[in-house]
Design a protein around this nucleic acid. Structure first.
Lengths: 197, 197
DNA sequence: ACTTAATCTTGTCACTGACTAGATTAAGAT
DNA sequence: ATCTTAATCTAGTCAGTGACAAGATTAAGT
């Protein structure tokens, strides 16, 4: 008998790999520096079990980060699906990007930290570049016939703005003068408008 | 006899605290995930010695990050000292920021990662905000009479651009189309020009 | 010279990631 | 159905880690 979402069978979890990533992402955001063993405990398997799905702790981290990119891509594609004009689409994407970072601060930091992700898995690289491709297309839509120079400048400055703004928001380092009611989204909107001019 | 930079005396290093930060910053950039004990070994003291200067491993990390901010501030002040027009000063600062990140990738990531710096020491907070103040002044110089709204927008977008560009450079995620000769500095220069307009 | 406090060492503890060998079960062949 | 084989999980072990305790050594102040 094969149960995909079995709860009774002790041995052979069913899909432990996915479960470890799921539990891993939860613990990463809740506990501080969860260990491989802590994730195994939470998944109710022995401390040795994860090794059959991930040769190394770094590989599990990479899988969590890849899963983060998958989720981010889905959010960005939701924006594409809602059919906005190019500039508005880009702005909406940046807001989705920021929202993802805010909802998943730890995994977000993991996704863009070569020191934390010591194993750049095929899965990780694939999901990472998939997300990037979505952003690339959104930039291209702003001005379909632009030169390579202009394209590189626009995508790098815009993405730097979006990513930097998300990081600074997470680090609580954005400047908020008294009586200024502007939200982070407003900074993104204004910055993007200027950078794509 | 009191030796500040003694090499012979075994006990009482002289200034072990500073030495640990120095060695720590070197090992952080060279080894992958150096341990507290590895740093102690490199400094040629016992594994228990660091605890007399840093209550916790996290405190040593925070001290390394604070030292990074100190170095960054010095670099930014060098730019201020060379007397440029406001926009050029800002651009030069961004280039110095990027250069610091490139020279100290691991410490740079540490400095802006709340997950890695679990102890936000007084020293850390002080050095961090000192560096920020330098940037604030450079932004103010661009347009001394601007409104708070405009100031917040400008500093947040410009800093996001600079920081984001540095992160993406470190992560090797900047777009480089074929035949595009633009360097990262060019992207910074163009982006800043647009954001302060 | 004597006292006191700071600094360093040594030893210990629970915990971690990695590895091994063996138990359990699922899947495929006959 | 039964047998075989491979995948999956457990339990046990190991060196290395950060934290802590107790005591040795030295510097500083009187």
């Amino acid at each position: 008998m094969t149960m995909k979402t079995a709860k009774k069978s002790k041995y052979h979890h069913g899909d432990l790999r996915a479960e470890l990533v799921r539990v891993g992402r939860v613990l990463l955001e809740t506990e501080t520096n969860p260990s491989l063993r802590a994730i195994a405990r939470q998944a109710e398997v022995s401390h040795g079990a994860p090794m059959h799905h991930f040769p190394t702790w770094a590989h599990l981290l990479a899988a969590c980060a890849a899963d983060g990119f998958r989720e981010l891509s889905a959010e960005l594609l939701r924006v594409v699906g809602s059919q906005h004009a190019p500039e508005e689409e880009l702005t909406k994407m940046s807001i989705a990007y920021l929202a993802f970072a805010t909802r998943n601060p730890v995994v977000f930091r993991l996704m863009f930290n070569r020191n934390a992700i010591t194993e750049r898995t095929q899965e990780f690289l694939h999901e990472s570049s998939a997300a990037y491709t979505i952003l690339q297309q959104a930039i291209r839509n702003v001005e379909p016939t632009m030169s390579d120079d202009r394209f590189d400048t626009m995508i790098n400055t815009v993405w730097a703005l979006i990513h930097g703004m998300s990081v600074l928001e997470l680090e609580d380092q954005l400047c908020r003068s008294a009586d200024v009611k502007l939200g982070t989204e407003a900074f993104l909107r204004k910055g993007i408008r200027q950078l794509i001019a």
